[in-house]
Design a protein around this nucleic acid. Structure first.
Lengths: 237, 237
DNA sequence: CGGCCTGTTGATGCGACTCAATTCAGGTGG
DNA sequence: CCACCTGAATTGAGTCGCATCAACAGGCCG
């Protein structure tokens, strides 16, 4: 094993890329080139990754940690567009067209990322139909997500949004929804509130109500589903 | 001029495609093939174009008329995700990945459209990097729009949303914002209300308030800006 | 220990939705 | 041409969800 640190890190990058949906099916040679392109960037907890409105320099893959994409009102109130988990890409949309970052990104924990600078990445994209196709699929899913959020905010009340969130979390973690299954809440409840388009007080009350209704059990940051059917009824509204 | 009806319509289709951003810069040969692909479809006023949740068959260009993309609550309340104008594409996002239509589409007026069936279009896409790139830019802009809507719904109140809507309309129509400039409202005020995430009664009251504040003048479906600065202040919240 | 942050709970107020009544505009048919 | 109907827009009164403000409890760390 006579590798330099640079080569080691290149191998590490390639290993990461292979796990990302965006790069699935991409030829080995392309992957190699993309790994060369990717810059490792880290962000300590509570530091900004980029600001809304700034010209997009590129996009990111979150390797380790947790981040949020937020909109902030002049009064300082926050709405979390998306909670970014490990292995997910973010700010992809801002790379195309002459579009500024549509939201700000902030590290919720210490974050390790791979950064893809805009222009070189676009050159690769033009050369790889598979990559382009994956990127289109990624943007489409993002779209679907945003559309669902809009539906929630405009047509549903807080309890319905919370119920849906719990169900989706459970589905995501266990692949099914059943009585007795549990899932974790993201970081703090304040963040969850901002994600659901409300504030921590209201979330707290809503959780308490669910608890007295014997729909869920809450212990610290862990939620156990007691009555899946009732939850689904609540989620429909 | 010895053309069959079929050829004539093919020429017409090509002419339309040339005007659409999605196809800008696409080679003539590709355009020809795409025109062959496109099926002309018409929808009478008040008829559905597709339903939310159904498997996506393809996407559309609106040639003539007006359409809405909507989410409907179980109780029948509507939220309009997007108002589609002439020359705009819609349902593009649903074509990639195995994603169902994220919202329903309905013709507000008699609509003439060009329909691109999914699989043949995807084959073309793989062969044309320019088309793929344009599609990515289109999806990105859509994304930006949805993100802004989310911000509005979660952080701003109705008056701010209305103010921003008026300003954007004016900017879109006149390219600038000035005292005295006027713009039209979309179809009915009920639709505008659904687009702003509220109901017609509230919109009516808000418009009335703006009028008494001497910020705008309302005549039928036409709005004249009296005080641009005040409007911008309102839009910020 | 004494800050600080997160979370909970209560009291209050405001924005916006609901329901209902009325007016208005457009379209149809006698 | 007018009477009639329908759907849209307006206005008022009442209600409700949720944000705001404030007080307080628990956990964490310097």
């Amino acid at each position: 094993m006579n590798r330099t640190a640079g080569e080691d890190s290149l191998q590490a990058k390639k290993a990461w890329l292979r796990r990302i949906y965006l790069f699935s099916g991409v030829a080995e040679a392309d992957l190699e080139a993309l790994a060369h392109l990717a810059q490792s960037k880290t962000f300590p907890k509570q530091t900004p990754i980029f600001w809304e409105g700034r010209e997009a320099q590129g996009f990111y893959i979150l390797i380790h940690g947790q981040a949020k994409l937020v909109k902030t009102s002049p009064e300082g109130k926050e709405y979390i567009i998306r909670l970014v988990g490990e292995g997910e890409t973010f700010a992809e949309a801002a790379v195309f067209g002459e579009i500024p970052y549509p939201a700000s990104a902030m590290a919720l924990e210490d974050c390790q990322t791979l950064f893809f600078p805009k222009s070189p990445f676009l050159r690769h994209l033009a050369a790889s139909p598979t990559l382009a196709r994956n990127m289109l699929a990624t943007l489409s899913k993002l779209n679907l997500h945003l559309t669902k959020q809009l539906e929630d905010l405009s047509l549903k009340e807080v309890s319905a949004r919370l119920a849906r969130f719990i169900l989706e979390r459970c589905e995501q973690v266990h692949g099914k929804i059943e009585q007795g299954l549990a899932c974790e809440l993201p970081t703090t409840k304040t963040h969850l509130a901002a994600y659901l388009g409300t504030i921590s007080e209201t979330l707290s009350r809503t959780l308490a109500r669910f608890k007295t209704l014997r729909v869920i059990e809450v212990d610290k940051g862990k939620i156990t589903i007691l009555d899946p059917a009732a939850l689904q009824r609540l989620a429909r509204k």
